[in-house]
């Protein structure tokens, strides 16, 4: 087996928030490393720091201590403009709700990402067509989000996250508003894209049913990250493996 490249490394990551006279430790000395093609799930009770961790990896927040090495660069001390540029080129977000732009057709939702990144028009269009096909949205390209079902919308959001060819995909409870079947399809689509495109992906979820699709499951509690070996032993076949 060829050693795959490390995409993300977290080194002793901590985040404190001031709360009146006290400081709250939201993230407590977290270390993690992820290789390309790896799909990691983070589960844990609300308030455990999952969202904060996702925001720091997603270049939305900077940590108080520690390093975030994304694609060989330490982004933990980046200035806001550098963070924005990092998000634009290296990170793909999938949010809890699809958060599509209401006045753009599905085609334009995806093309917009290329425009933000100043990607060549033709390359942008090809990429869009490719993703639309893979996500089974071909018949929807000229529709507006208002006429799509929840599952379709979330698939558009997945496509959007992959449009900038990011190193890492961050999904924040992507199945929260979907039923089991549709939720599963969405997560499988994410897994499929991550495997075929050799990306890394982190999914924050409450939804235990989706964990089988992931390669690793991490538990988060009180700002600490614990690897869940149980899930790994279960060894569900992932779509890529089947």
């Amino acid at each position: 087996m060829i050693m795959s490249e490390e995409i993300l490394t977290l080194q002793h990551l901590s985040k404190f928030f001031p709360d009146g006279d006290r400081t709250i430790t939201v993230l407590d000395d977290i270390s993690l490393s992820m290789k390309e093609g790896e799909f990691v799930a983070i589960v844990g009770p609300s308030g455990s720091g999952k969202s904060t961790l996702l925001s720091i990896i997603g270049a939305l927040l900077t940590p108080t201590k520690g390093k975030v090495i994304l694609d060989g660069k330490d982004i933990s001390a980046f200035k806001p403009a550098q963070l924005t540029a990092t998000r634009a080129s290296n990170i793909g977000f999938i949010f809890q709700s699809p958060n599509l732009i209401p006045y753009l057709t599905i085609k334009d939702q995806l093309l917009l990402i290329g425009k933000i990144n100043n990607i060549n028009k033709k390359a942008n269009r090809n990429k869009m067509n490719e993703l639309v096909r893979e996500l089974g949205l071909e018949h929807r390209v000229n529709n507006y989000p208002s006429s799509l079902s929840g599952g379709e919308k979330q698939r558009v959001a997945i496509g959007r996250a992959f449009m900038n060819d990011p190193k890492i995909i961050l999904a924040d409870e992507p199945t929260a508003s979907l039923d089991t079947e549709r939720g599963r399809t969405v997560v499988e689509k994410i897994a499929y894209e991550v495997k075929t495109r050799r990306k890394a992906a982190i999914m924050v979820t409450h939804d235990e049913r989706m964990l089988g699709v992931c390669d690793r499951v991490l538990h988060m509690e009180d700002g600490k990250l614990i690897e869940d070996n149980q899930a790994e032993k279960k060894n569900h076949p992932t779509p890529a493996q089947t």
Partner: peptide, 16 residues
């Protein structure tokens, strides 16, 4: 606001 927040999260600059 929410929409612009999402755009910013996806890397759109304030200028854009």
């Amino acid at each position: 606001t929410n929409q612009f927040g999402v755009l910013k999260a996806m890397g759109a600059t304030t200028f854009y």
